[in-house]
């Protein structure tokens, strides 16, 4: 019993310590952002990698989420004759919640894992040490471009997911469930406030920061060859996904 408590205790302490280190890396990254010059070439390369290459995944995620939301809420609302409000539910759930969260989870799977694997490989093959010896700070050279790219791109991807999700919901409602297109459209726009979209975008920005910092942290702290890189990759995805879900609750609660 005591042994068990001890194990839990050490695990917990380790978690606290690690969170502290991630926070320090976050602050250092912020400091380096404001120390010119910014490496535009690296930032653009990352925007391409994180942003442009994620578009297909994001569009498919957004479209099917909107479509399934339309189906599900139609089933529910029909039971008390409120099926004309499907458009409202789809628009609100997508912009406030599912757009940013699902985009965050997809990007963490696609981009976070790639970042952790790339930086982890650089760590175990001493490429990060080599940067130091070339008088180049790896946080500035490697993390800042990834951080900026992910933070800029996540809100944009989320807007794409929102738009395609709403279109997907419309398509299913109008062409499969036979809803009236004019009413559906009106229900969508009438109750959607700018605030809903902003809150989604704020979430997406925070998620972008979480993905970049957690994944870069895991990459920089990789130990022990190829299997270490594998572990870092898994940890990057699992931890950033969990942190996205936790942060999501708190942002929602704050903006409620």
């Amino acid at each position: 019993m005591l042994r068990l408590l001890e194990i839990i205790g050490t695990k917990f302490l380790k978690l606290v310590e690690e969170s502290g280190r991630v926070a320090i890396l976050f602050l250092k990254t912020l400091l380096w952002i404001f120390r010119p010059p910014l490496n535009l070439r690296n930032i653009l390369a990352q925007i391409e990698e994180v942003g442009i290459n994620s578009i297909p995944v994001i569009l498919i995620t957004g479209a099917f989420t909107g479509m399934v939301l339309a189906l599900q809420s139609y089933t529910g609302f029909k039971r008390f004759g409120a099926e004309t409000f499907v458009g409202t539910v789809v628009a609100l759930s997508i912009t406030r919640e599912l757009g940013p969260v699902l985009s965050g989870l997809m990007v963490s799977g696609r981009v976070g894992s790639a970042m952790a694997a790339e930086l982890g490989t650089m760590q175990v093959t001493e490429q990060i040490d080599a940067l130091y010896t070339l008088a180049t700070n790896p946080i500035k050279y490697l993390i800042v471009p990834r951080f900026l790219a992910t933070t800029i791109v996540m809100p944009i991807l989320t807007v794409f997911a929102d738009i395609i999700g709403i279109i997907g919901g419309y398509m299913v409602s109008v062409y499969i469930l036979g809803s009236n297109p004019t009413i559906y459209e009106r229900r969508t726009w009438d109750f959607l406030k700018l605030n809903d979209i902003y809150s989604g975008i704020l979430k997406a920005t925070v998620f972008g920061m979480i993905i970049a910092i957690v994944s870069c942290y895991q990459g920089f702290n990789t130990e022990g060859g190829a299997s270490g890189v594998g572990r870092a990759t898994t940890k990057a995805v699992v931890l950033s996904s969990l942190m996205i879900l936790i942060a999501n609750y708190f942002i929602t609660a704050l903006m409620f």
């Binding site: 490989t121 650089m122 093959t125 001493e126 490429q127 040490d129 080599a130 010896t133 008088a135 700070n137």
Partner: peptide, 22 residues
């Protein structure tokens, strides 16, 4: 780290396994 960076400009280092940027 910041001051070390200046000192490191005096150095060149060949790593045991090369450590080329792949």
């Amino acid at each position: 780290e910041g001051d070390l960076n200046e000192i490191r400009k005096k150095f060149g280092m060949l790593f045991q396994w090369g450590a080329l940027f792949d």
